[in-house]
């Protein structure tokens, strides 16, 4: 071996190598960002971030499912009895007043994805039942039984007109 192992690195040498290693490493790390970013939703997917829904034609007690960002959103027109029952209770396992979960008491808008493992619950009797693992939700989307760790999510939405909502922007 021709290398003279006794030649030690002076402090200055070490410094230059360190600076270069840091600069190179930082550059390599930054170069990874476009690759990671390319896996995020593309502009055309982001453009579909909102969904408009026309509420006309829904009678009290009716439920519709609409796709928002590919996920089902339950829109339930609640009867006066349902509203009264929901406002009277504070929910089951994770208490939350009904008023905080609706914009207008007549209309419940929740993301129809079970907060446990992501199955879509079925409308059965009062509220919803998820058949994957048996969670149950009431007519305010609040957990009344089962492994679900959270109440059904309320998506951002607003009424554009009296009978039209846009889901995806508050």
């Amino acid at each position: 071996m021709a290398e003279n192992d006794t030649v030690g690195d002076t402090g200055r040498r070490k410094f230059l190598i360190k600076v270069t290693a840091v600069a190179g490493g930082a550059g390599a790390a930054v170069a990874c960002l476009p690759f990671i970013s390319s896996m995020n939703p593309s502009a055309d997917v982001l453009a579909k971030a909102t969904t408009e829904f026309d509420l006309t034609g829904m009678n009290p007690g009716d439920m519709r499912t609409v796709a928002w960002q590919g996920k089902p959103v339950f829109i339930l027109r609640r009867t006066p009895e349902q509203i009264a029952a929901m406002e009277a209770s504070n929910g089951g396992l994770y208490p939350e007043p009904d008023q905080q979960r609706v914009k207008q008491p007549e209309w419940l808008v929740v993301v129809g994805v079970c907060t446990h493992m992501g199955c879509v619950p079925n409308k059965e009797g009062p509220g919803w039942t998820c058949h994957c693992h048996g969670s149950q939700y009431d007519d305010s989307g609040r957990v009344t039984r089962g492994p679900a760790p959270k109440n059904l999510e309320v998506p951002p939405y607003r009424f554009i007109t009296a009978d039209k909502i846009v889901i995806g922007e508050a």
Partner: peptide
């Protein structure tokens, strides 16, 4: 064209 226009940094890739 989707890659070139809509995918984040798709043009770069």
């Amino acid at each position: 064209q989707h890659i070139m226009r809509d995918v984040n940094y798709g043009w770069l890739l």
